[in-house]
Design a protein around this nucleic acid. Structure first.
Lengths: 140, 140
DNA sequence: AAATTATAACGTAACCATTACGATTTGTAA
DNA sequence: TTACAAATCGTAATGGTTACGTTATAATTT
């Protein structure tokens, strides 16, 4: 998780102008620790800034994804974003019920590179799905 | 890859009526060995059966996915399908250039279960992306 | 083989997430 | 504080997907 310290700095680092809306979006994500859809972001932002444009939401989400402030994933056909844990390679467990994220460290990409020696692996996507501790208890 | 043998049988096994369109869709996939979008399937089918309904394409793709004749994946925000290699657990390498699929055997799901002992892992998604041998040569 | 019934396909429009765009406002640097 | 580039607004368009009443076809029964 990115440190709270200074969202202004975070945006400046990536040559993005520091705007109210952007700060507000980052703040929304900062303690969320789950993937949310643009719609959810829109609803949150529209409460704070009534009449905010879709354009502002979608473009900012994508822009911040491009510079690695956010992570993007497609879940059931829809885009979802979460704040980026930018400092090291990792993957995610995602709770199917509540969307909670847990970071997973182990990554066997080197093993796959051996298995597929004739192709060039540029990237990979790994996601684990299931129920978090809380949602397991609720289900029982 | 499912054996060519008998697509009729394949459909009957899953309590699906054997129709021309369905046979034709399976035939289209049978030697393709890559993920394609519904649009691509539509274009192929519309050439064979001019005026074919979107409904027929989308519903059949989804139906055949449900009974595991096809596999589904989301790539750049769009659904994609390929014929299912239904007989064993595996994952895919997908060529970013031409869409070619290679099957990957190794799967570390047990390691992840150890790492995340407090959650219940129900499923997982693993995909490797890069360039196949042919597309590497073309690029050079 | 004909009749019956359940499922599939047709034709078309609606839905909905996402994107586009000209006009306006705001942030930043000179 | 002026000027310019970038961001936001407001709104409409786009495009993949789904919905649905009607018609056709496959499978089952008589």
């Amino acid at each position: 998780m990115i440190e709270h310290v200074n969202y202004r700095e975070l945006l400046r680092t990536h040559d993005l102008k520091v705007t109210e809306k952007r700060l507000s979006i980052i703040e929304y994500f900062s303690d969320l620790n789950k993937y949310v859809s643009p719609k959810e972001v829109y609803e949150h932002m529209n409460a704070l800034y009534p009449g905010i444009s879709y354009d502002t939401i979608y473009r900012n989400l994508y822009t911040m994804y491009e510079v690695n402030i956010l992570e993007q994933s497609t879940f059931e056909g829809e885009l979802h974003y979460t704040i980026s844990c930018s400092d090291h390679h990792h993957h995610h467990f995602i709770c199917e019920k509540c969307g909670l994220i847990k970071v997973v460290q182990y990554c066997p990409v080197e093993i796959w590179k051996d298995e597929l020696e004739d192709v060039k692996i540029n990237s990979h996507k790994i996601e684990l799905y299931g129920l978090c501790t809380k949602c397991q208890k609720k289900a029982a």
